[in-house]
Design a protein around this nucleic acid. Sequence first.
DNA 1: TATGAATGAGGTTTCATTCAT
DNA 2: TATGAATGAAACCTCATTCAT
Lengths: 228, 228, 228, 228
Amino acid sequence: MTEKSTKAVAAKTAAHKPEAGAEAAAPASSRAMRAAKRRDAIVEAAMEEFIARGFAATRLDDIAKRAGVAKGTIYLHFKDKESMFEELVRTVIVPVVAKLNALPPPTGSVRDLVEAFAGNFLKEVIGTRRGDLVRLIVAEGPRFPAVADFYYREVVSRGVAGMRALIELGIARGEIRDKDLARYPQILVAPAMIAVIWQSLFARHAPLDAQDMLRVHLDLIFGERRTT
Amino acid sequence: MTEKSTKAVAAKTAAHKPEAGAEAAAPASSRAMRAAKRRDAIVEAAMEEFIARGFAATRLDDIAKRAGVAKGTIYLHFKDKESMFEELVRTVIVPVVAKLNALPPPTGSVRDLVEAFAGNFLKEVIGTRRGDLVRLIVAEGPRFPAVADFYYREVVSRGVAGMRALIELGIARGEIRDKDLARYPQILVAPAMIAVIWQSLFARHAPLDAQDMLRVHLDLIFGERRTT
Amino acid sequence: MTEKSTKAVAAKTAAHKPEAGAEAAAPASSRAMRAAKRRDAIVEAAMEEFIARGFAATRLDDIAKRAGVAKGTIYLHFKDKESMFEELVRTVIVPVVAKLNALPPPTGSVRDLVEAFAGNFLKEVIGTRRGDLVRLIVAEGPRFPAVADFYYREVVSRGVAGMRALIELGIARGEIRDKDLARYPQILVAPAMIAVIWQSLFARHAPLDAQDMLRVHLDLIFGERRTT
Amino acid sequence: MTEKSTKAVAAKTAAHKPEAGAEAAAPASSRAMRAAKRRDAIVEAAMEEFIARGFAATRLDDIAKRAGVAKGTIYLHFKDKESMFEELVRTVIVPVVAKLNALPPPTGSVRDLVEAFAGNFLKEVIGTRRGDLVRLIVAEGPRFPAVADFYYREVVSRGVAGMRALIELGIARGEIRDKDLARYPQILVAPAMIAVIWQSLFARHAPLDAQDMLRVHLDLIFGERRTT
DNA sequence: TATGAATGAGGTTTCATTCAT
DNA sequence: TATGAATGAAACCTCATTCAT
């Protein structure tokens, strides 16, 4: 309690010397900034907790503790636990969508594109916190239609559309033979999804070399590569 | 708790052989039978509720109400909520495993076998209560290692092994060209899993013709069929 | 309840004539005997449990298990848990009272009489199940006025009266000098009671030589003995 | 929980020095003070209920109601019912021990000292809430070894040691003749204990003049007083 | 704005008692 | 008479939410 106040005072003091650091803006924005930082801390903490325990079993107490704020503070940023969960998913997913939208222009072979994409997915999703988020959405989706809807609209439908475009390009260029594949872009990403889930549930029992699996899968679609 | 279930199961089994005594067996088995029926009702009700709400958000009250028993009765069959959940998963999965073990002998082409299998999966899992159970396991697995372990041991590892055997047969017979596929039988079932999850989460937004998708996927692996 | 006790007593009486064979008496009395045996087993088990856990924390289930009968059987002998407790105390105390009533005629010195009595108390009460019963009555008395009343009427008031008579005899004979002692016979038995409680609670920390303590106490009252 | 109590106690102490800051200390201490008051109210209420019903039969609901707080508030101060009981006993006994430690220096005759002590005991323990607490400890001791241990360590062993010292002094001064008494200081306090229990259980049937009884007992030990 | 003590509805679990067999 | 499965009231405890400071 005392240390909190001290911290707050220190921060407030710092706010009077706005040039003192990279993110120390004008006094007016300093308030907003601190609020935003708190919010971020809450979002971060909430994500960890929700992933670890699921929505219902997560306690706001634990989120507050992990975020380093008081329980009441959460209610200054979110209406209630449900809203927090829904907003949290949105907050975390938005940058992903942004990245997807900033597609690199389709230069090079389709296979290279897909492989680049898969590599990125491997690095940034499979076996990471973000992968766990996918599992969390699968887990809580039925009880949070708003979350499922949002996720479908922002990620799944766009992802499917993007994959379809790539597949059609591949077909047009003769890299992909099976024309029906364009109707089910899900097939293209299915093993990646499986890898995400596998890491969460079964890695302990049987580790999965996701990278190698994805390569084999792409070979299936594009034909085996001559050289490695 | 386990002994209870064992008792109940034993009783149920015994109930099918009521010749053991004129007036002793009949009432005895009727008692046991009713107990077994109650247990089944509880398991059934619990599955519905757990699927609909997840473990933490499910109330024993609701399970009891749905099963038509008093709350206390649940505790005659299960030690506590956690044990109930774990046993429930076991109870529901055991017949699935039994079915998997009763493999039809591998006659006919591998593609036919796989297609038969896929057809069965379509009919019995995708879009059914059993499919929801898979999603439930994905959702709760991390908080119930025992469940994830059991599921891996009884279903996943056997399924993977079976698929691998089929793939190797397909390779040996020349039906499958990509020899690496045997290393990742997961690829074979990935679209089916995706279909299961899709039905739970996104069917509302974009219905998925799982049957057609699986066909396309098999074409990818076995090559397109000449005739339909 | 009253009819039960009557029945039980009759049965118990019958039990003293077991010449009819090991335990297979005439059909008529065999029933009654078995019932009485059951009742005794329940009383025995209940006493153990009540002493170990107190009234509220004792489960009928445990009593039944320990007595080797079904839970429902208890209700054939006792109206409910409270009645059982009250009757139990009565049942166990009655023989004690009987013994007290069968006083040896006052021959010899008063000190010898008191010492004999103390020796008996030492052997039969302090550190035994019966001593625990005393503690149980102290513990539950306020919640069971009927028990406290019964205990007062049957044991305490008689004991006090008996002690008073002894003290008066001692005074008359010149063995006891302090005439006021007759007004508080409790003083005579106080150390014995303390010994009972001490054994239950503190024997672990500091064992108490009750016999020696009682001797010292009697020396205080009667004057030190010349010879040991 | 223990830290909570510590916090509360510290706050209460601090509340006596409110000069520490114009506007900071007042509200701070007011909060802490109210918390401490609440805790005291809970302790008070719990003692009443535990004494009236014993540990197992006491409902937290009733304690809360009597203390004028919500059920949940209890859990801000105590981990659970058991801890509450154990801490309660400690909390109530500590001032008693403090008083015992603040012994008046042994001036005057030993008999006067003991009589003063007995008078105090009469006024402050026998027939009071504190006396009931003794009975409660006797009642619950076997199920709460921690409580029995604490009580033995803090009260009984010190009390016995103090009595022994007094007795030895009395022997040295020639006020007490029976030298063996020093081995069993319990004899000195036994009638007082009996009085405590008697008041709880039998006062209704036969009121006991504890003061007079203690006087008679002391006469036994010190010899009859010439004048009253 | 931030705090965290306080609340009390609601969840899990226990167990005395009943009753069909 | 004896059983023990079934009941459901009632207990303990948790935790999302509020609000005085």
